[in-house]
Amino acid sequence: MVAAAEASARGGIPAVWQRVITFLLCLLPLAWLVLRALTDQLSANPIEDITDATGTWTLRLVLITLAMTPLRRLTGWKWPLRLRRMLGLFVFFYASLHLMTYLWFDQFFLWSEILADIVERPFITLGMTAYALLLPLALTSNQASQRWLRRGWKRLHRLVYPIALLGVIHYYWLVKADVREPLLYGAVWLVLMGLRLHLPASTSRMNRQDEKKSL
């Protein structure tokens, strides 16, 4: 209530609407995919399309999530940090769709094949590793875990940086010849890491408290 009043007083969008809008925006890629499927707009190999779309959006969303802290520090806006948790959970959502597409539609839960893939194909090894690392972050994204883990929580959630990098390399190793898109994501990751290192964590005590509160 206070936040909403504060936001509207400054002419901004109330916090609750920020969340609703972000939620709907994050569902758009999935909605678009479903629409294409229902209107027969997918290619002759729809499972490949689903794998591509869910994988690509996992990667884009994890980079968007990583952009929230630098955005906060560059602009002083508060909303980026408020939306970070939801964005992170959508990363997990799309990653899960991506993984399920592979396990179910691509391998039909043939565990011997899946195991062989994990062991023999480096891009799958990386993808699986990234998901395994993402899982504890999703499970501890609630406030109870935050309180329970205290300082460890922040350390744990810094895992998102290597996870994003694993995702980029996973994509890079998958592509046969045209590596422009994975390289672009790699460049974005580097810029975000650089910003994180070069922007002061907080310019004032107030800022620091903001960041803590809105974790």
Binding site: A44, N45, E113, D117, P122, L174
Partner: peptide
């Protein structure tokens, strides 16, 4: 096998 793809099975379009 190809390093990126198992060649044991295939999806007929």
């Amino acid at each position: 096998d190809h390093p990126r793809w198992s060649q044991a099975r295939e999806r007929r379009i």
